[in-house]
Amino acid sequence: MGLFMQTLINGILIGGIFITIAVGFSISYGVMHIVDFAVGEWIMLGAFTAFWLNMYTNVDPLLLIPFIALFFALIGYLFQPVIQKVVNIKHRSAAMMALAFTFGLSTLIRGSALTLWGFNNRNLITVLSEKNVDLFGITVPAIRAGATVFSILVTAAFAYFLYRTKTGITIRAAAENKTVAGLMGIDGHRISRLVYSIYVGLTAMSGVFIGSIFSVFPDMGLRYTAFAFFVVVAGGMGSFSGAIVAGLMLGLISSFVSVYMGGAYVFLILFFILYLILVFFPKGILGKGW
């Protein structure tokens, strides 16, 4: 029973962090219709940025989070037009070209990171590391609890922005139909740029948490790219609430599978479940995608 509770709580905590990545990825996909294969690389770069900044400035990685989020939001903002350009090229399968482009980008970033920083695992030490908190009688690492609480707050703020502000309305409008939004005077390119920027910022921020819970290495992003796909497809393409449910599910599945069956089986089970979801709920578990 103790092990079960421990696994359950761990799963929820990790799921909480996945939610932030999932929501950003899903909304960015919803607006731009581009699958960003580099999602894991933004996580890895976020973690490495925290690691190096911490090494040279000795500022706690958790305090660096606002800076890292803003810095990567800026990178996303500057980089988005490049991706947009690939999609705008008159080509029969522009979406496919964009996919190939972000895949190449991901390989380039990962390869460069490997060359620069090697295979070594590095640890991101924060003020919460090696501390524990009691949750419902279960002892959990403080960093996991803190990261989850923070992620959930950020996601809630993002939800508020999307559903309660004028700019949020324009984002949801652009996600549903860019042409109609354009007729209302909304610049679709500007919205895409804004959304991509938010997504890259959120993802890099989550990278700091992931890096401090596990460890930091150039290949760390890979599994999260696969996770992001799981969440977007399982939750329904472009669905906010679907991404939240799928993010939580992902946390629980990976936690339970690695405890009761072994870490090697996580992807096997995960994608088997994704297969079942696609067969029985092709629009995502909440039926809200398309």
Binding site: M184, G185, I186
Partner: peptide
Amino acid sequence: ENLILATYN
């Protein structure tokens, strides 16, 4: 929201 959207600019 449809109406608010129209007033964005």
